[in-house]
Write a protein that binds this DNA or RNA. Sequence first.
RNA 1: GGGUGUUUAGCUCAGUUGGGAGAGCAACGGCCUUACAAGCCGUAGGUCGCAGGUUCGAGCCCUGCAACACCCA
Length: 931
Amino acid sequence: MSIANRYDPAAIERDLYAEWEHSGAFAPSGNGAPYCIVIPPPNVTDRLHVGHAFQHTLMDALIRYQRMNGRRALWQTGTDHAQIATQMVVERQLAAQGIALQDIGREKFIDRVWAWKESTGGAITQQIRRMGSSVDWNRERFTMDEGFSRAVLEVFVRLYEDGLIYRGQRLVNWDPQLKTSISDLEVENVEEPGHLWHIRYPLADGVYTADGDDHLVVATTRPETMLGDTAVAVHPDDERYRSLVGNSVILPLAGRRIPIIADGYVDREFGSGCVKITPAHDFNDHAIGTRHGLPLVNIFNADASVNDNAPVPYRGLDRFEVRKRVVADLEAADLVERVQDHTMTVPRGDRSKATIEPWLTDQWFVKIAPLAGPAIEAVRDGRVRFVPKQYENMYFAWMRDIQDWCISRQQWWGHRIPAWYDDAGNVYVGRTEAEARAKAGLADHVALRQDDDVLDTWFSSALWTFGTLGWPERTQELADFHPTDVLVTGYDIIFFWVARMIMMTLRFTGEVPFRKVYIHGMVRDATGAKMSKTSGNGLDPLDIVDGIATEELVAKRTANMTQPQMAAQIAARTRREYPDGIQPYGTDAVRFAFCALASQGRDLAFDLKRIEGYRNFCNKLWNASKFVLSHVDGAAQDSAALNGPVALSAADRWIRSLTGRLAANAHAAIADYRFDLYANAVYEFAWHEYCDWYVELAKPVLFDAQAPPEHVRAVRKTLLETLAALLRIAHPIVPFVTETLWRHIAPRAGLGGDTIMRQPFPSPDDLPADLGAEAAVAWLKGVTTAIRNIRGEMNVSPAKEVELLLQDGDTADRQRLAATEALLKRLAKVGALRWLAEDEEPPPASVQVVGRLKVMVPLAGLIDADAECARLRKEIDKLNKDLARVDAKLGNANFVAKAPAAVVAKERDRGAALRAQFAVLDAQLSRLEAA
RNA sequence: GGGUGUUUAGCUCAGUUGGGAGAGCAACGGCCUUACAAGCCGUAGGUCGCAGGUUCGAGCCCUGCAACACCCA
């Protein structure tokens, strides 16, 4: 079977993945030490976006690398039920059909969600496959599947029994649109323009302020909440109001009498220094209310319309409508002193984007402090390490101030809370209703009703590492693969997920969930802007893999929008940015780009130009392999072509040495999670050493019919063996092209295996450094480059053979030339070559200096003397600058006295070399100018 | 308001204990040289955000400032 003439990723990638998957190659195997990564479970509502693809690429590179190193590698995959996000999507679909939730009821709704999940859940797994991710599909899990749900139930019940889960009436973040509580983390604080209203509250009982006013002025951004005010607070040390503390004001509109209290929380500088206190609708006010024993007046319904605790005219109206009316009514009563423009921080739900209300409800909470302590300790003592380390500070800061976690959601889709109530409102918790009854010794005739709420989606994902491995059963997988080795995730979910995993896992397994947390940056578009559906700059990774036409992309980006008014703008932007659509680049190119861009501690700008470059890289690998195969197969009839004695040349030894260095660098880079350094090392070696130099160095031998067989064999074997090593080293990044090429290259290199996936990752020990060979090739490269430079600068056609003159130099130069003359002649297209005697006057020539060696190309007919003079002046100029810097350094007595001897010696050598070069070039310039 | 990160070539980014500023892309010049024009050869381009400090020596260490990004309040 011969290799296709052209690299075409579409032709290889799909079939290869199916073959891998069916062969069972992704499952852990062998007797090596276990290695495990759990995938951060994507939401079933999602399609894979480039951020996922990026993250998965890094994980797959790690898994493939460890698998090649003989580890029993498990990449645990699965998806998350994404409680709120999923419910929202299905609700919206129903709404589009004119169906309201209460019409169909809880059970039917949940059936609908499952049906929808079954119909779309496949999309994301298909995308994971197309990205080449070698996950173990046999072990795929879903956070709502039976086994995992059991783990969730178990954890809830045990935490409850241990007193770490409690139910209580608390002020929580309430989303009036979704009509559910959400946790602190799910609230985004957004700065928005607003107003600050200064409102007069009349003093009761005929008292006056120190300034003689009959009222206090309070400033608020939310005048509607005054309907629930139960006090006005001033600072205890504020002389202006000290005498009024203990008196009352009459709350306007409501007409209630409320006290004036003193509390250190009040900022005297803000507004008039008087603050309205609404304990039922503000977290800070609630704390003050608790301190002062103030009553709570809840004025909102679940949808944030105003309830019957407010004066009649406002009842039943939406909060924003009430705001307008309250302001109007106050103005009518001349109680508004002034109105300022004011930037306010508005809390919004991260899913619904609705303005959140602090609202008093009964909810379930996790008591967090007993869980946080051990979790802080685990990071402090290094059982869990963050990479990069700076994220540990972020983790500590958050964990120190962590508040109890509200885990109940007033929704239907999700893990239903395993608590039951009797008619008296007593609560019974158990794994089943029967267990709950049994524990409480309840008679069968006592009616119980299960809690309607479901759990926060992050409650279940916190159990992901051990829940997927079979907990609460004591499975072999749990024993083998837990703690997992590394978690690869973005900094955006350190609090949501990483911290909670550490807390829960320590509590229930006594182990950390993972030993390392590799935190990657966020993928942004080519201009560095955040990718999002609403700004329409997001990309489906498969559209880069397979390519997409402009209009198709426009259609995709403007479909199913939450903000349809943006469609025209997005369409225009898309047409501008992708006038010719996106070419099909193939999975390998995209993966290579992700690795190369994965530098630590920063977001990455995702640029298609980079992908194109790496597609070209894959093509380069393909063509190099084609070259190697053609020269091996051409000789295949000759059984001695590869078998028999070999005599390795300096070039052969050099590329072997560099291959060893590549292996060492790759191992080190992966150990440090430096995917960028790893990818760059592969790129640099493959393109600029193997292809640019070694293949060229191989040609003179391969094309020479007279070459001794042991030399030819050495070149063929070296081409094959180093390419085979390169393919294995590159495989974790670019699995498809390397596997395809491997199957052609490996058998000829005497290496077995149907798949590169199970081949050992090359060890530097197999290819020790050969300093002699490296020095020899460095010399050859230097002389070749010098001649090419003359050609380039003098516009001598590469096709034109030139004469080469050498002069001076030392014995090493002569030895090296002798060893590599044939190579040099080919690489630099040199015809005649002659050493000049030391005292021989060279003909007019263009000259370069390599070490002590003068490299000259005679001008005769080839080179313009004026151009050469100009070039020399430029060179001399540069030399002079360098020399001046070196001399300044050496002229500094302090430098010579204090710098390490080696540094000084190096500087002296550099000076001497520069001076020698200068002498040659300067003499050459005078000679040409004289002529 | 507190914290973290970033600032290096036109663009995107490397730069590992302080010791001659790098890559890719873009640009410019020359090449269809028997693996590859998705290529080859060569060239040019930077006050390393600003201001101080430490040091014989600073992109790197310290202080301050600025801009941008993000996290927390």
